[in-house]
Protein backbone atom coordinates (compact mmCIF):
# COMPACT_ATOMS: atom_id res chain seq x y z
CA UNK A 1 0.00 0.00 0.00
CA UNK A 2 2.74 2.46 0.91
CA UNK A 3 4.10 2.00 -2.54
CA UNK A 4 0.88 3.10 -4.18
CA UNK A 5 0.81 6.37 -2.31
CA UNK A 6 4.25 7.39 -3.43
CA UNK A 7 3.47 6.35 -6.98
CA UNK A 8 0.33 8.33 -7.21
CA UNK A 9 1.47 11.87 -7.94
CA UNK A 10 3.42 10.55 -10.91
CA UNK A 11 0.43 8.74 -12.33
CA UNK A 12 -1.95 11.61 -11.80
CA UNK A 13 -0.47 14.31 -13.94
CA UNK A 14 -2.10 17.66 -14.31
CA UNK A 15 -4.81 17.82 -16.88
CA UNK A 16 -3.14 18.80 -20.16
CA UNK A 17 -4.32 22.01 -21.78
CA UNK A 18 -5.29 20.30 -25.01
CA UNK A 19 -7.71 18.05 -23.15
CA UNK A 20 -9.44 21.08 -21.66
CA UNK A 21 -9.65 22.78 -25.03
CA UNK A 22 -10.89 19.60 -26.68
CA UNK A 23 -13.55 19.13 -24.01
CA UNK A 24 -14.87 22.64 -24.51
CA UNK A 25 -14.64 22.31 -28.29
CA UNK A 26 -16.73 19.13 -28.25
CA UNK A 27 -19.25 20.78 -25.95
CA UNK A 28 -19.52 23.90 -28.07
CA UNK A 29 -19.76 21.83 -31.23
CA UNK A 30 -22.61 19.90 -29.73
CA UNK A 31 -24.35 23.08 -28.60
CA UNK A 32 -23.95 24.59 -32.07
CA UNK A 33 -25.54 21.52 -33.58
CA UNK A 34 -28.46 21.69 -31.16
CA UNK A 35 -28.83 25.42 -31.73
CA UNK A 36 -28.93 24.89 -35.46
CA UNK A 37 -31.46 22.11 -35.11
CA UNK A 38 -33.56 24.32 -32.89
CA UNK A 39 -33.44 27.21 -35.34
CA UNK A 40 -34.56 24.87 -38.09
CA UNK A 41 -37.38 23.51 -35.99
CA UNK A 42 -38.55 26.95 -34.97
CA UNK A 43 -38.24 28.91 -38.17
CA UNK A 44 -41.24 27.26 -39.82
CA UNK A 45 -41.81 27.45 -43.57
CA UNK A 46 -40.13 29.86 -46.00
CA UNK A 47 -40.99 33.43 -45.03
CA UNK A 48 -42.72 35.92 -47.28
CA UNK A 49 -40.15 38.12 -49.01
CA UNK A 50 -37.43 35.48 -48.83
CA UNK A 51 -35.77 34.27 -52.02
CA UNK A 52 -36.95 30.76 -52.82
CA UNK A 53 -34.09 28.48 -53.89
CA UNK A 54 -34.41 27.12 -57.42
CA UNK A 55 -35.77 23.60 -57.78
CA UNK A 56 -36.74 21.18 -60.46
CA UNK A 57 -39.99 19.28 -60.79
CA UNK A 58 -40.20 16.16 -62.91
CA UNK A 59 -43.83 15.78 -63.90
CA UNK A 60 -45.71 12.51 -64.14
CA UNK A 61 -45.40 12.86 -67.91
CA UNK A 62 -41.61 12.96 -67.59
CA UNK A 63 -41.28 16.65 -68.41
CA UNK A 64 -38.70 18.59 -66.40
CA UNK A 65 -39.63 22.04 -65.16
CA UNK A 66 -36.93 24.25 -63.68
CA UNK A 67 -37.98 27.30 -61.69
CA UNK A 68 -34.85 29.05 -62.97
CA UNK A 69 -36.43 29.17 -66.40
CA UNK A 70 -39.61 30.70 -65.04
CA UNK A 71 -38.18 33.97 -63.71
CA UNK A 72 -40.52 36.77 -64.74
CA UNK A 73 -43.59 34.65 -64.15
CA UNK A 74 -45.62 34.12 -61.01
CA UNK A 75 -45.29 30.52 -59.80
CA UNK A 76 -47.98 28.85 -57.71
CA UNK A 77 -46.55 25.82 -55.91
CA UNK A 78 -49.22 23.59 -54.40
CA UNK A 79 -48.30 20.65 -52.18
CA UNK A 80 -50.85 17.86 -52.10
CA UNK A 81 -51.28 14.11 -51.80
CA UNK A 82 -53.96 11.64 -52.81
CA UNK A 83 -54.33 10.41 -49.21
CA UNK A 84 -54.99 13.92 -48.00
CA UNK A 85 -58.70 14.61 -47.47
CA UNK A 86 -58.46 18.43 -47.08
CA UNK A 87 -56.57 18.58 -50.40
CA UNK A 88 -59.73 17.43 -52.18
CA UNK A 89 -61.57 20.51 -50.91
CA UNK A 90 -59.37 22.86 -52.89
CA UNK A 91 -58.56 20.72 -55.92
CA UNK A 92 -61.41 22.00 -58.10
CA UNK A 93 -60.79 25.65 -57.14
CA UNK A 94 -57.10 25.37 -57.97
CA UNK A 95 -57.89 23.92 -61.37
CA UNK A 96 -60.43 26.69 -62.04
CA UNK A 97 -57.86 29.30 -61.08
CA UNK A 98 -55.33 27.71 -63.41
CA UNK A 99 -57.76 27.81 -66.32
CA UNK A 100 -58.45 31.45 -65.56
CA UNK A 101 -54.79 32.48 -65.78
CA UNK A 102 -53.63 29.88 -68.31
CA UNK A 103 -53.94 32.08 -71.39
CA UNK A 104 -52.25 35.13 -69.91
CA UNK A 105 -48.98 33.22 -69.83
CA UNK A 106 -47.88 35.12 -66.75
CA UNK A 107 -48.76 32.48 -64.15
CA UNK A 108 -47.42 28.93 -63.79
CA UNK A 109 -49.06 26.34 -61.58
CA UNK A 110 -46.96 23.47 -60.23
CA UNK A 111 -48.53 20.63 -58.26
CA UNK A 112 -46.06 18.84 -56.01
CA UNK A 113 -47.25 15.44 -54.90
CA UNK A 114 -45.89 14.78 -51.41
CA UNK A 115 -45.07 11.19 -50.29
CA UNK A 116 -47.60 9.57 -52.55
CA UNK A 117 -47.92 6.60 -54.85
CA UNK A 118 -48.17 7.20 -58.58
CA UNK A 119 -51.23 5.03 -59.19
CA UNK A 120 -53.30 6.81 -56.58
CA UNK A 121 -51.94 10.19 -57.63
CA UNK A 122 -52.95 9.67 -61.27
CA UNK A 123 -56.42 8.62 -60.15
CA UNK A 124 -56.69 11.80 -58.07
CA UNK A 125 -55.57 14.02 -60.98
CA UNK A 126 -58.09 12.32 -63.24
CA UNK A 127 -60.90 12.62 -60.72
CA UNK A 128 -60.45 16.38 -60.36
CA UNK A 129 -59.56 16.85 -64.03
CA UNK A 130 -56.36 18.67 -63.19
CA UNK A 131 -54.48 19.94 -66.22
CA UNK A 132 -51.59 21.97 -64.82
CA UNK A 133 -48.22 20.20 -64.47
CA UNK A 134 -47.96 17.85 -61.51
CA UNK A 135 -45.11 15.68 -60.39
CA UNK A 136 -43.86 13.68 -57.43
CA UNK A 137 -41.70 15.33 -54.78
CA UNK A 138 -38.69 13.13 -55.50
CA UNK A 139 -36.68 12.36 -52.35
CA UNK A 140 -38.88 14.96 -50.59
CA UNK A 141 -36.41 17.58 -51.85
CA UNK A 142 -38.93 20.28 -52.76
CA UNK A 143 -40.92 20.00 -49.53
CA UNK A 144 -37.64 20.32 -47.63
CA UNK A 145 -36.85 23.57 -49.46
CA UNK A 146 -40.18 25.02 -48.38
CA UNK A 147 -40.05 23.26 -44.98
CA UNK A 148 -43.71 22.36 -45.21
CA UNK A 149 -45.40 21.03 -42.11
CA UNK A 150 -48.14 19.11 -43.91
CA UNK A 151 -50.43 19.07 -46.92
CA UNK A 152 -52.09 21.01 -48.42
CA UNK A 153 -49.87 24.07 -48.46
CA UNK A 154 -49.56 26.58 -51.26
CA UNK A 155 -46.71 28.99 -51.97
CA UNK A 156 -46.86 31.85 -54.45
CA UNK A 157 -43.54 33.04 -55.82
CA UNK A 158 -43.39 36.48 -57.46
CA UNK A 159 -41.72 37.42 -60.75
CA UNK A 160 -38.36 37.98 -59.02
CA UNK A 161 -38.30 34.56 -57.40
CA UNK A 162 -39.25 35.77 -53.96
CA UNK A 163 -42.05 34.33 -51.88
CA UNK A 164 -45.09 36.59 -52.27
CA UNK A 165 -47.55 34.75 -50.04
CA UNK A 166 -48.37 31.35 -48.64
CA UNK A 167 -51.41 29.43 -47.54
CA UNK A 168 -51.26 26.68 -44.92
CA UNK A 169 -54.30 24.42 -45.26
CA UNK A 170 -56.85 24.31 -48.05
CA UNK A 171 -58.28 27.28 -49.99
CA UNK A 172 -61.97 27.68 -49.43
CA UNK A 173 -62.92 29.87 -52.42
CA UNK A 174 -61.43 30.58 -55.80
CA UNK A 175 -61.48 34.27 -54.86
CA UNK A 176 -58.92 33.57 -52.16
CA UNK A 177 -56.57 32.08 -54.74
CA UNK A 178 -57.01 34.76 -57.39
CA UNK A 179 -56.58 37.64 -54.95
CA UNK A 180 -53.25 36.17 -53.78
CA UNK A 181 -52.08 35.65 -57.35
CA UNK A 182 -53.25 39.07 -58.46
CA UNK A 183 -51.36 40.82 -55.73
CA UNK A 184 -48.23 38.88 -56.75
CA UNK A 185 -48.81 39.88 -60.41
CA UNK A 186 -49.22 43.55 -59.53
CA UNK A 187 -46.01 43.81 -57.56
Amino acid sequence: MENSHTDEPKNQKKLPRWVIIAAFAVLLGFLTLMGWGLRNAQQGPVQVGQKVPAFELTTFDGEKIKTDDLIGKVIVVNFWASWCKPCEQEAAELEDAWRYYKDSGEVVFLGVDYVDTETEAMRYLEKFEITYPNGPDLRTAISQIFRISGVPETYIIDKNGKLASRKIGPFVTIGEITSMIDSALNQ
Binding site: A81, S82, W83, V115, D116, T117, E118, T119, E120
Partner: peptide
Protein backbone atom coordinates in the same frame (compact mmCIF):
# COMPACT_ATOMS: atom_id res chain seq x y z
CA UNK B 1 -52.37 6.01 -41.90
CA UNK B 2 -53.92 6.13 -45.35
CA UNK B 3 -50.58 7.17 -46.89
CA UNK B 4 -48.92 4.05 -45.53
CA UNK B 5 -51.76 1.82 -46.69
CA UNK B 6 -51.09 3.21 -50.19
CA UNK B 7 -47.39 2.48 -49.85
CA UNK B 8 -48.17 -1.11 -48.95
CA UNK B 9 -50.45 -1.33 -51.97
CA UNK B 10 -47.55 -0.01 -54.05
Amino acid sequence: TQACAQWRAL
